[in-house]
Lab assay of single mutants.
Amino acid sequence: MRVFPVYAPKLIVKHARIFLTGVIWVKDLGRLEFEKGRFLLPRKSLPKVKQAILELNELIEAQN
């Protein structure tokens, strides 16, 4: 598990694309899981977490 002390979308996306499957922890967002290079949306999450995951997945799609 990698810990990101700040929310840096480009760096987080780079990590997810390299490792494809895993878990990261982002300060103020908490634990985020990714599989096959995409972030998974938890069943229950705060609106800011949901927005961050959608933003990260959009960045991943834009890079493909």
Rank of each mutant, 00 (worst) to 15 (best):
R38G: 05
R2D: 14
L41G: 04
V49L: 13
R31A: 04
I53R: 00
G30H: 02
L46M: 12
L56V: 03
I12Q: 01
D28R: 15
F39A: 01
R31H: 05
K14Y: 10
K44L: 08
V49R: 05
L59F: 07
L56S: 00
A16L: 07
L41P: 08
H15C: 04
I24L: 07
H15T: 04
P9Y: 02
F4H: 02
A16Y: 02
L59Y: 06
L32N: 01
S45D: 07
L56I: 05
I24K: 01
G30W: 02
A8L: 13
I12P: 00
R17S: 13
F39E: 01
V6Y: 13
I12F: 03
A8I: 14
E61W: 09
E58F: 11
I18T: 14
N57F: 01
E33I: 11
R38H: 14
E35F: 09
V6G: 04
I12T: 01
V6I: 13
V49I: 11
A16P: 01
I18R: 09
V3F: 15
Q51H: 13
V49N: 03
T21L: 07
V23L: 08
K48T: 07
R17Q: 13
N57Y: 01
S45H: 13
W25L: 10
I53E: 00
I12K: 01
V49A: 05
V26S: 02
K14H: 12
P47W: 08
G37N: 05
A16I: 13
A52I: 09
E58N: 10
V26F: 01
P47R: 14
V13E: 04
A52L: 06
L29T: 04
V23S: 07
G30T: 01
N64Y: 05
L40E: 04
A8G: 03
T21H: 11
E35M: 11
Q51L: 09
R43I: 08
Y7W: 14
V49S: 04
V26I: 06
E33R: 15
L41V: 09
M1C: 13
G37Q: 06
L40V: 11
G37K: 04
N64D: 14
R31Q: 12
I24E: 00
I12M: 05
Q63N: 09
L46S: 12
